[in-house]
Design a binder for these strands. Sequence first.
DNA 1: GCGAGCGATACCTTCCGGGTATCGTCGCAG
DNA 2: CTGCGACGATACCCGGAAGGTATCGCTCGC
Lengths: 283, 283
Amino acid sequence: MELRTLRYFVAVAEELHFGRAAVRLHMSQPPLSRAIRRLEAEIGASLFDRSSAGVALTPAGAVLLDEARALLDHADRARVRVAVAAGAATLTVGLLGDSTDPGVTRLAGAYRGRHPHVEIRVRETDLTDPTCGLSAGGVDVALTRGPFDKTGLTVRELRADPVGALLRADDPLAGRDSLTLADLADRRWFRFPAGTDPGWQAYWNGGRLREGPVVRAVQECRQAVLWNGTVGVTLLDHEPGEGLTVVPLVDMEPSRVVLAWPEAGANPLVRTFVAAAIAAYRD
Amino acid sequence: MELRTLRYFVAVAEELHFGRAAVRLHMSQPPLSRAIRRLEAEIGASLFDRSSAGVALTPAGAVLLDEARALLDHADRARVRVAVAAGAATLTVGLLGDSTDPGVTRLAGAYRGRHPHVEIRVRETDLTDPTCGLSAGGVDVALTRGPFDKTGLTVRELRADPVGALLRADDPLAGRDSLTLADLADRRWFRFPAGTDPGWQAYWNGGRLREGPVVRAVQECRQAVLWNGTVGVTLLDHEPGEGLTVVPLVDMEPSRVVLAWPEAGANPLVRTFVAAAIAAYRD
DNA sequence: GCGAGCGATACCTTCCGGGTATCGTCGCAG
DNA sequence: CTGCGACGATACCCGGAAGGTATCGCTCGC
């Protein structure tokens, strides 16, 4: 009954679906099934009813779910206390510049509530670094958006937001209910400066690099759209700003809010932050 | 920071000596050192000061010791609660017959205090089965004495008691301060019935099988000594009984109180019982 | 009746946790 | 001051567990 196994169990118990739980755990389904079976053997009781109707918790499983959550939470708190005792109780969170996501402040607040002795520093970066300083160092964990080069990083998706084209209100396409990328194929798109992560750049360009003005921040993007009709991609629920409208792009991947942190050598508090973030975004 | 690693850490922190901790954990010293180093790397702080003067806890280590104990205890309780929910909250403890060890009742009491919802059944056996019914089945864990055939069993030593020869008070050797096995080489020793564990039989015969009356219980042994001067081996601090004395045997291994349980397929509560027993015997 | 979905099984590969042997360092005794 | 013993660290090896891919068996809905 190791903690890792309990994390597996909690994932399955919450998803009530081995496949989805495996995705959440970044592993494939067979070893997860096996781990749960071993856990059941060790506990001496079956934890799930697997029927054709789906997966359900047994009474013993329900008890273990409570216990496992409490135990994992306890472990997280223990980690933090040790870090505090070691004088390493600072966590630097990288934040994607101009983010209007209200979850961020709620998240930081929730974390401070759980672990009041940890000092959280937020470092905001412009749009040209989707890792928010992770690759440059000095940042322990980044709350940002994909996609970007993941080598050396662990990435956990928190949410997916549908996106749309940001257009001038007087654009011929501004009145449409929805658009496809083909509708915008011959437009100018804004670019990021040379050296920006290619995957990130390509995403905001709807799949391929195109010509257009170079910008670094959300405000610059808006101005580029206003000034010369450059196409921008933005979140559907963003307030577009004066003179601008947003039209849903039906064939574009949603923008994924992700948490990213170094695979190794990380600040030990990162795990606790990740856990808190996942819990906060679950609602 | 898995639970197993924390158990390792607690052992080292309590022994303040890697070698002894490794013995206690039934492993060798190098992997233990490595595990602790990995834990320190993961925590991001050193937990021990290793100096030539010995091993000492750092402040962070002291905090982790508290946290780890609490966490391991929490895990044990969680185990028990799940077992209770699964309706498997019965533990059958085998006890070596005629044991006068006062720790046993204290132990059962301590366990009931920690885990009041677990029903403990005590099954007492005579001296001919040192595994107290473990090998026969129906017993989850045995509180007994070594040595015996350990195949398929895990054995944990709790204490070692010095032993002496049990002699009639009017025996020529009864007045001696101490004896060696050589002093008793030509005596009759009691035997156990055929089929009794050979190592066990040999131990109480001082190393080799000898001729003598067949007995099954402590009272029979005493009577055999009284009736015909047969030699018995018993604990130094046992009350020998009317007409009998005990003389220390200086060249005999002490008698070890041990806990034994099946290596696999065990009742999941066994681990919690073992933990409680070790804690109770530590004093 | 058949395909899709889902958990279980089979089997392979990799790596971690365990082992033994040995080293480096330090205190101590002769 | 030099050899020796104690002790933790290091080097290296091996078996098994944990992870992966491919596939099966069952059930359900169309």
